[in-house]
Simulated assay, not measured.
Amino acid sequence: MDDTTGTLDEALERLHATGPERNGWLSNHAPMAVEALVRRGQAPTVHRWLDRYRHKLEDMPSPGSPVTGNNWREALGDPSRIADWTRHFERTVEERPWREVLAEWWPRLLPGIAGGATHPVIRTGHAVRTLLTSGESAPRRAELAHALGYWAARHQPLRAVDPLPPAPSAAAALDAVPAVRSQDGGIRARLAQLTAFPRWGVAPDPDTARTRLTELVAAATRRYATHGHGEPTMLVHAATAPNAVLRTLPALPRELWAPSLAAAWAASAAVTAAYTPPEPLPYTVGAHTPEEIFERAAAHGDDHTIKFCDTALDVGDPMAMAAAVRSIELNEPVF
């Protein structure tokens, strides 16, 4: 849905004075949530939502030294360079077409897809969706710059894992992902325990990669209906991270689609391994329409819930809608 009200640009301009994190590493979800709210017809709620979220925002850190074509490799993955990376991409997307910038940096950033608990790639997916479907503006290009800068600063490749036997489907592959041994600690401690993934996220050509990525998003979204109770907040990323990649594919050269599938599968599998519960629970399919469900999510106010319901609406089937309702039930309301 195009934003004819100007609300999204206003919201992004409010947010671009703030950093992508708070308290040292917790992500600023506001740019992603407001994009989803506008996209799903909830633009009138955006500024009120931002007013209530304001206490979670911190100023953008002070810059250090510029990121350049000569030193970017040493700055990659250095969270103390968040402001430097953001300034680099702000300059770059104003000097060159944003698709050209994205195509150059996507393969550089993709190995670090799990950095920042996958929030940087998710923020990138929201920014690209708007640029692809709603037109360009200075705040929208700046939002892509902030997203890419966050990703570059938090870039962190996953540890190498052993291959398990191939799975016949995305759902079967997610079911076969071994849980990490210790379910204590944050995501970084859990990702350090990854051991093996089923062989699944491979495609022989770009169109197959897109089809399998679509399948992965649907499977991870549906799985939340039965497994979201394992960790209601973190498990949404098993679906929203690959969906961010799926949303970005149309802006990328086709030769990047297959490696994008592989990275998205690794991210989804990693989150699943880190937080999957011992047993699934039953779910109920309700009678609410997708529009009613998202309206409930907006009223609920939790940023992860809003983003997950946005992804569930992309999937659109009854089990995905049940998963969306489950996220509303499991996560703490903000409003």
Rank of each mutant, 00 (worst) to 15 (best):
D2M: 14
D3I: 01
L8Y: 02
L8N: 08
D9R: 12
D9T: 08
A11I: 06
A11S: 05
A11P: 00
E13S: 14
R14L: 14
A17F: 02
P20H: 08
L26E: 09
S27P: 13
H29I: 04
A30W: 10
M32S: 09
A33T: 11
A36L: 07
R40K: 01
R40W: 04
R40T: 01
Q42T: 07
A43G: 05
A43W: 00
P44V: 02
P44Y: 11
T45R: 15
T45I: 03
V46M: 07
H47P: 00
H47V: 03
W49Y: 15
D51P: 03
K56L: 13
L57S: 00
E58F: 14
G64R: 15
V67N: 10
G69S: 09
G69E: 12
W72Y: 09
E74Y: 12
D78N: 13
D78S: 06
P79F: 15
A83V: 02
A83S: 10
F89E: 01
V93Q: 01
V93W: 06
E94S: 15
R96E: 14
R99M: 09
E100W: 14
V101E: 06
L102P: 02
A103N: 13
W106N: 07
L110H: 03
P111H: 06
P111R: 08
G112M: 10
H119Q: 12
P120K: 07
G125E: 09
H126I: 02
A127Y: 07
S134G: 15
S134C: 11
G135Y: 09
E136T: 12
E136Q: 13
S137R: 05
S137P: 05
A142H: 10
E143S: 14
E143I: 01
E143G: 05
W151A: 04
R154K: 12
R159T: 14
V161H: 05
P163R: 12
A167K: 08
A167N: 04
A171Y: 09
A172S: 11
A172E: 14
V177L: 05
V177Y: 05
P178H: 06
A179F: 07
A179H: 00
Q183C: 06
Q183Y: 03
A196N: 05
P198A: 12
V202W: 07
D205C: 11
T208L: 14
T208P: 00
R210G: 08
R212N: 04
L216H: 00
V217F: 01
A218Q: 02
A219Q: 02
A219S: 08
H227A: 01
G228A: 06
H229Y: 01
V236Q: 10
T240M: 11
N243C: 06
A244G: 05
V245D: 03
P250E: 02
A258N: 03
S260I: 05
A270G: 13
A274Q: 00
Y275K: 08
P277G: 04
P282E: 07
T284E: 09
T284K: 14
G286Q: 04
A287L: 14
H288S: 15
T289E: 06
P290V: 01
P290W: 00
G301F: 04
D303E: 15
D303L: 11
I306A: 03
L313K: 03
L313R: 10
A322N: 06
A322K: 08
A324Q: 03
V325M: 10
L330C: 00
L330K: 03
N331L: 15
